[in-house]
């Protein structure tokens, strides 16, 4: 079953050129989708468009057949689509507890929010011991966990993660991807943007390769990984450090 459809979307910032040019992608419910591609391919921009933080110049985004592009970010969030951006975007001077409460901001009933927080803490018990710490004092991996937990506060149907492994040690990266797998078992559709191609595709069901603002090719994650076009794309366009390619 399809959950998200991107139809011919073009988008860019300010007066600048199109970052996405008429890109069309479809995402299936309940799977982990990994978006890869060179820097500037438009991966993060696509997530921002879906989240409503950036209005597309043309084209539309549909959630289960209903158009959601053009809605405000808070309205899209209310439809169950949440974004965990690259910089985690926590509130550094608030405690983890307050960050989670802010995650449930669109729910007005505070009892519902508290109940949901308990549920989320059961899913991510490792977050509990930091509840009273200021978010800004946590390590990168802990912050990423909190950011994912915060996203869960709204009962999302789709969770989008922009480079969850960025700047984390390999061991921590594994823990994060394990947490992402837990999201799948809860029935949440996951969209990940990853520079760490090997790692991202290893955990994903499907892979999507973006290049120059368009969808270059897609397929089951394993096939994408072995596709010679992928090697070509990375080696031809940009020099990746060994560590990044091998993950």
């Amino acid at each position: 079953m399809l959950i998200l459809e991107i139809e011919e979307v073009s988008a860019g910032y300010g007066m600048g050129p199109d970052i996405l040019s008429r890109v069309s992608v479809r995402f299936e419910a309940g799977l982990i989708h990994c978006l890869i591609g060179p820097n500037g391919a438009g991966k993060s921009t696509l997530l921002r468009v879906i989240a409503g933080l950036l209005r597309p110049r043309s084209g539309r985004v549909l959630l289960e057949g209903k158009v959601i592009s053009g809605l405000r970010p808070d309205q899209i969030l209310a439809h169950g689509i949440c974004l965990v951006p690259q910089d985690r975007s926590l509130f550094p001077d608030m405690t983890v507890r307050e960050n989670l409460l802010m995650g449930g901001y669109i729910e007005r009933d505070q009892r519902q929010v508290s109940r949901r927080m308990e549920e989320v803490l059961e899913i991510f018990p490792e977050v509990r011991r930091h509840l009273n710490h200021r978010a800004g004092t946590l390590s990168g991996g802990e912050q990423q966990m909190v950011a994912i937990a915060r996203g869960l506060m709204v009962h999302p149907r789709v969770m989008m993660l922009d480079e969850p492994s960025l700047g984390l040690a390999p061991l921590v990266v594994d823990r994060i991807f394990e947490a992402i797998s837990r999201l799948k078992t809860m029935g949440i559709t996951v969209l990940i943007v990853e520079q760490n191609v090997r790692k991202g595709l290893a955990y994903a069901d499907r892979g999507y390769v973006l290049d120059m603002g368009r969808l270059s090719f897609e397929g089951p994650a394993r096939e994408v990984m072995e596709d010679p076009r992928l090697q070509e794309l990375y080696l031809g366009r940009m020099v990746l450090s060994n560590r990044e390619v091998q993950g």
Binding site: L53, P73, A78, C82, P85, F91, M102, G103, Y105, V154
Partner: peptide
């Protein structure tokens, strides 16, 4: 931006 992301 983070405030926008959580729906403020």
């Amino acid at each position: 931006t983070a405030a926008q992301i959580v729906g403020v």
